Simulated scan of single mutants.
Amino acid sequence: MGLIDKQILSVMIFIKRTEMVEKAKNRGLTHPEVVACSQELDILLNRYQKIA
């Protein structure tokens, strides 16, 4: 993965984190949509760490 891929992944992480925070504000931390969003964010963060 190159620099561009890392930058794209950074943007994807920012977007997913923002989405998760908004859902948590509206639905609560344990809502299934929030948990699913958190799991998706974890996957993105793990991918980012592998290339960092």
Rank of each mutant, 00 (worst) to 15 (best):
M1W: 08
G2R: 04
G2Q: 07
L3N: 10
L3Q: 14
I4G: 02
I4K: 07
I4S: 09
D5N: 08
D5Q: 07
D5M: 04
K6T: 11
K6I: 09
Q7G: 09
Q7E: 12
Q7C: 13
I8A: 12
I8K: 13
L9F: 08
L9R: 07
L9V: 08
S10T: 09
V11S: 15
V11L: 10
M12C: 12
I13T: 07
F14C: 06
I15S: 08
I15H: 12
K16R: 13
R17W: 08
T18Q: 01
T18L: 01
T18M: 01
T18S: 06
E19H: 15
M20V: 08
M20C: 08
M20I: 11
V21K: 11
V21Q: 11
V21W: 01
E22S: 06
E22V: 01
E22N: 11
K23L: 15
K23S: 15
A24P: 11
A24L: 07
A24D: 12
A24H: 06
K25S: 11
K25C: 09
N26F: 07
R27N: 15
G28I: 15
G28N: 13
T30V: 09
T30R: 10
T30L: 13
T30C: 07
P32S: 04
E33Q: 10
E33N: 06
V34I: 10
V35Y: 01
V35S: 02
V35H: 03
V35W: 00
C37E: 06
C37H: 03
S38C: 07
Q39M: 02
Q39N: 03
Q39E: 07
E40S: 04
E40Y: 03
L41S: 03
L41E: 06
D42E: 05
D42P: 02
L44W: 00
L44D: 02
L45Y: 05
L45W: 05
N46Y: 13
R47N: 01
R47S: 03
R47D: 01
Y48T: 01
Y48P: 02
Y48K: 00
Y48V: 02
Q49I: 03
Q49F: 05
K50Y: 04
K50L: 02
I51T: 01
I51Q: 03
A52V: 04
A52R: 00
